[in-house]
Amino acid sequence: MTIAPMSCLTASQWLTAGESWNDFEIHLQTALGGNQSSPTTFVLLGFGNFLGLRILLSVLFLAIYALSLVGNLLIVLLVAVDQHLHTPMYFFLMNLSCLETCYISTIVPRMLASFLTGDRSISIKGCITQYYFFGFCAATECYLLAMMSYDRYLAICKPLHYSTIMNGRLCLQLAFTSWMCGLVTNTIITSFMLELTFCGPNEIDHFFCDIYPVANLSCSNTHQVKLVTFILGLMGTGPPFLLTITSYICILLTVLRIKSKAAQQKAFATCSSHLIVVTLFYGSIFLVYIVPESVTPSELHKTFSLFYTVLTPTLNPLIYSLRNREVKEVLFKTVRRFSNRVS
């Protein structure tokens, strides 16, 4: 269909010709204002209401980042060097720690640079790259948490068949599936994100490049990318969450049958701490990506985002690994061995 020049068409004629209202607005702006240059950078407003606390926030997030890196990398090192930790449970924990190290590193260093330098700008390519790696890590974590809960379910509820079912080959397959599901899911979303065009405001009301805040700045039709994000987000979090919760419910029911009160209390303490982390992670993701934007104010949206981008990567090594007796013994043994070599 041949479309007449913009100046010859009214809004109703333009829409009748098959173009969207969004397209009409863009052509109207071009007709009135001439060729407008597209922005090459975005500005991450972040926590702009707390600019007076920049130094305090820098110290706080630097401490959190350092704690997360030390905790997660320590788990990776201990599992890699000690034969006693070469079990399915610690294999998945090592995968989770590797993931968390990458996960928090896509967000916090950029925040720290903004706090310290005051420069909150980021190129559009850099913004999309940050979202790609962040989304990949977030989606992968959903699947890894589900695989870890399934592993614990087999170990506690099916102990006689555990070693037969959870062999080395299955562990590799489950871990590989988790990483690939996260990669494929977020590659699809990012491919839609790359189709967006930007020709207006460039301020992102967030502390990192997330899909919805970035899409809201686009002057193209964002319905499709938001719909794909919603559907894939629901598919990527729903089944893993149900598997995780179902596994822990079965574990708790099995623990209730244990006659020893001390064993029950220990199992309950472990499961409850795991469930707290899982609830924080999935609950914040649900509130950010599933609940309509109009229901969640911007500041609350950013606060919920802190839970799954910063808090859970810091808590996971403490909750899942460093509180375990086996890990503590390996840690103390490694420290003693290292100190003896130095002395």
Score class of each variant (00 low, 15 high):
residue 177 T to H: 11
residue 239 P to Y: 04
residue 255 V to E: 04
residue 149 S to N: 04
residue 148 M to G: 14
residue 180 M to T: 15
residue 201 P to W: 07
residue 187 T to E: 12
residue 188 I to Y: 13
residue 205 D to P: 09
residue 139 A to T: 14
residue 262 A to S: 05
residue 203 E to D: 15
residue 198 F to D: 01
residue 267 A to P: 00
residue 134 F to H: 06
residue 203 E to G: 12
residue 248 Y to H: 14
residue 214 V to A: 04
residue 189 I to D: 11
residue 198 F to L: 06
residue 208 F to Y: 07
residue 204 I to H: 03
residue 152 R to P: 06
residue 203 E to P: 03
residue 165 I to T: 15
residue 252 L to P: 05
residue 163 S to M: 14
residue 151 D to W: 05
residue 167 N to R: 09
residue 200 G to T: 12
residue 244 T to K: 00
residue 225 V to Q: 09
residue 143 Y to N: 05
residue 165 I to N: 13
residue 253 L to H: 01
residue 227 L to P: 07
residue 153 Y to W: 12
residue 236 G to R: 04
residue 223 H to Y: 10
residue 153 Y to C: 10
residue 254 T to A: 06
residue 213 P to K: 01
residue 175 A to T: 02
residue 140 T to A: 12
residue 154 L to Q: 15
residue 134 F to G: 00
residue 233 G to A: 09
residue 157 C to I: 00
residue 169 R to M: 04
residue 177 T to W: 11
residue 206 H to I: 07
residue 163 S to E: 15
residue 159 P to M: 13
residue 149 S to I: 06
residue 264 Q to V: 10
residue 191 S to Q: 15
residue 256 L to G: 04
residue 135 G to S: 05
residue 197 T to F: 05
residue 150 Y to V: 15
residue 136 F to T: 02
residue 205 D to T: 14
residue 164 T to N: 01
residue 187 T to K: 09
residue 136 F to H: 07
residue 160 L to C: 08
residue 153 Y to Q: 09
residue 202 N to K: 12
residue 184 V to R: 11
residue 240 P to H: 10
residue 240 P to A: 10
residue 229 T to C: 15
residue 232 L to Q: 01
residue 209 C to A: 13
residue 181 C to N: 07
residue 213 P to V: 04
residue 250 C to T: 13
residue 231 I to K: 02
residue 198 F to I: 10
residue 207 F to C: 11
residue 236 G to Q: 07
residue 134 F to Q: 02
residue 245 I to Q: 06
residue 139 A to L: 12
residue 143 Y to M: 03
residue 203 E to F: 08
residue 133 F to H: 00
residue 162 Y to Q: 03
residue 170 L to I: 01
residue 210 D to R: 00
residue 219 C to Q: 03
residue 144 L to S: 12
residue 186 N to D: 03
residue 139 A to W: 10
residue 160 L to F: 12
residue 241 F to Q: 08
residue 168 G to Q: 00
residue 223 H to R: 11
residue 227 L to Y: 04
residue 161 H to M: 02
residue 247 S to N: 05
residue 190 T to C: 15
residue 212 Y to V: 14
residue 180 M to K: 08
residue 240 P to C: 09
residue 152 R to H: 07
residue 186 N to Q: 06
residue 242 L to F: 05
residue 269 A to H: 01
residue 258 I to D: 06
residue 238 G to Q: 03
residue 145 L to K: 09
residue 158 K to D: 14
residue 243 L to C: 00
residue 254 T to Q: 01
residue 149 S to C: 11
residue 202 N to H: 13
residue 158 K to N: 15
residue 155 A to L: 13
residue 156 I to C: 08
residue 214 V to I: 15
residue 198 F to Q: 11
residue 219 C to F: 04
residue 137 C to A: 15
residue 148 M to Q: 12
residue 191 S to K: 14
residue 183 L to K: 04
residue 263 A to L: 07
residue 213 P to L: 01
residue 213 P to S: 04
residue 141 E to N: 13
residue 240 P to Y: 09
residue 198 F to K: 08
